[in-house]
Design a protein around this nucleic acid. Structure first.
Length: 285
DNA sequence: CGCGTTTGACCGGCGC
DNA sequence: GCGCCGGTCAAACGCG
């Protein structure tokens, strides 16, 4: 039961309102998300093709989760059943039943809220203040880069994320969070630098969030390619977007591994990126 | 020894 | 009905 609650049970809209598939989700990212340079190159990157018609486009590859989104949610039914995924896995391990995971009973579950970030970074797996355990990696069609699947290591938390590189621009990492953390961030065991990056992301997200909420252009899919010509500001400029359908908040930001500053350069953020992106009303705890 | 990653197999949805 | 494909599982492995 805890899984349901902490997994997004408080999400203010139903699964029906969620994106039917993530190709639409990513398509939305495509038309909505632009890039801002990192202030170093002084180059404004073009937004991705809004139309998934691009055969080998990153949107296609990135959005290829499409039909399986439901599937994924379905497979997580066990989590929603009251056990977090990690617990489920642990349980299945302790119980040497023949093919424990293979006989999982199917159960529909409401889709978790998702947040996608497009990151121009050399780092594949961005630290966001939470600890993640990789549970899978898959080659994605039309993309030379594999997609990695991570799950929050907190056994009460069902949050997952997918990380993949854009096939169009290998320097762009698409990170998709699914679910909401029901706990605070852990300490950063993997280095303060990465943690600082996460802090910067969260900090920037928090600031730009409000700013972009008021941009009508962002809310109109008919708007011609709303490239967010925000002047280069910092190495961690973030562009969260509010899509009309709310289920998705998309942000793209630019950073560089080498630009990670020392701890303390950014106001302390004791919550992770996701927490920062989630409106307080949507938060659970 | 504990924890995280790798990797091949499996499952189920969806399109044709 | 079949094949494709994304998502997940879980054993094996690696690392600190």
């Amino acid at each position: 039961m805890a899984g349901v609650e902490c997994g997004g049970g408080d999400w203010p809209f139903s699964a029906e309102e969620a994106y039917a598939d993530s190709s639409a989700l990513l398509a939305e990212i495509g038309w909505a998300a632009g890039f801002v340079d990192d202030g170093c190159a002084g180059e404004l990157l073009p937004p991705l093709d809004p139309h998934p018609a691009t055969p080998a486009g990153s949107m296609e590859g990135a959005g290829a989760s499409s039909s399986s989104t439901d599937d994924g949610a379905t497979r997580e039914a066990a989590d929603a059943d009251g056990r977090p995924a990690a617990a489920t896995e642990a349980a299945s391990k302790t119980a040497p039943a023949p093919a424990p995971g293979k006989t999982m009973k199917k159960q529909k579950r409401a889709r978790q809220p998702r947040f996608a970030f497009m990151t121009k970074t050399e780092i594949d797996h961005l630290e966001d203040g939470y600890r993640w355990r990789k549970y899978g990696q898959k080659a994605v069609k039309n993309s030379p880069f594999p997609r990695s699947y991570y799950r929050c290591t907190n056994n009460k938390c069902t949050v997952k994320k997918r990380v993949e590189r854009s096939s169009e621009d290998p320097s762009v990492v698409i990170t998709t969070y699914e679910g909401q953390h029901c706990h605070h961030t852990v300490t950063f065991p993997r280095g303060a630098g990465a943690a600082t990056l996460a802090s910067q992301m969260a900090f920037s997200a928090h600031h730009h969030h409000l700013m972009y909420n008021d941009l009508p252009a962002l809310h109109s899919p008919t708007t011609q390619n709303p490239l967010f010509s925000v002047p280069a500001m910092s190495s961690s400029l973030l562009q969260p977007l509010h899509c009309n359908r709310q289920e998705l908040q998309v942000a793209s930001y630019t950073t560089q591994a080498s630009s990670i500053s020392s701890p303390g350069s950014v106001p302390a953020v004791d919550k992770g990126l996701l927490d920062d992106m989630v409106p307080p009303a949507m938060r659970h705890g």
